[in-house]
Design a protein around this nucleic acid. Structure first.
Lengths: 127, 127
DNA sequence: ATTGAATATGCCTTGACACGTATATGCTCT
DNA sequence: AGAGCATATACGTGTCAAGGCATATTCAAT
């Protein structure tokens, strides 16, 4: 199974992870919400657990699975250089549009506002 | 082939993408730098191109491939909720450590500095 | 101790995909 | 036109992982 990227390549596993963002869940709850057969859920959880994406605690017959963010941070780290790349490209696009505007003289303020919003977004967070 | 996640699950494709961050490259250059057979490179480039990760321009017999950041932004977007999750967890860990310290009375300032650095890092960019 | 619920595991089949090797296409130069 | 380089594609093969189904395990309650 190797890398974190192969783990999150599987759609059902991504669904499980997304589900666990809000709160921890039992296998049965996952099964019901994602409408997938129980063995499928268990197998994917096994993979996720072995790869460190989730952890589990025992609650009687149930097992509660919760997220462990570290492996996902690896993905985030890999993405870092590309983030620099695409903000550079955004800036280049902006400059290009600005040049166009110096010719056409149209609404510049609206785009300025958008650019500000994008910069915020690039910093992460923000709902 | 479907999703962007399956595309970047392949190590050679990730290598190609990383290589293209610095600048555009011909097939032959990729082949040499990554030491993989030419058909392999061409096939992976085909996949990356179909999925929109790269674009190509023709230069006589060569083809120059360059990065297109949009699909990677999808990955970044998917990661967003988890980023919130793990910074919440970092904070919780910090609070926990702080409570421990109130008992053990040890170096608190060093950790405060680290927390600040993490917050910067979460905003993206930097370095 | 037995039954039933919740979860895990084993086996089998199927399909996708990566690779190697060979070959095709396209361009340049003489 | 022909030779040679750069890149793309076709085909056959092996591997591996996901799904379905059956079954095993574990715990609770009676």
């Amino acid at each position: 199974m190797e890398s974190v990227f192969e783990i999150i390549a599987e759609p059902n596993r991504r669904a499980i992870l997304s589900l666990l963002v809000s709160s921890q869940q039992s296998v049965g709850e996952i099964e019901r919400q994602l409408r997938m057969p129980q063995p499928t859920v268990s197998k994917h959880l096994r993979v996720l657990r072995d790869a460190g994406f989730v952890e589990s605690t025992v609650d009687a017959q149930r097992r509660l699975y919760r997220l462990n963010p570290e492996p996902l941070q690896q993905v985030d780290d890999w993405l870092a250089p590309f983030r620099r790349f695409w903000s550079a490209h955004l800036d280049a696009l902006e400059r290009h549009l600005d040049r166009m505007e110096q010719v056409t003289q149209t609404k510049k303020k609206a785009r300025r506002r958008r650019r500000g919003a994008n910069r915020e977004r690039d910093k992460g967070e923000k709902k």
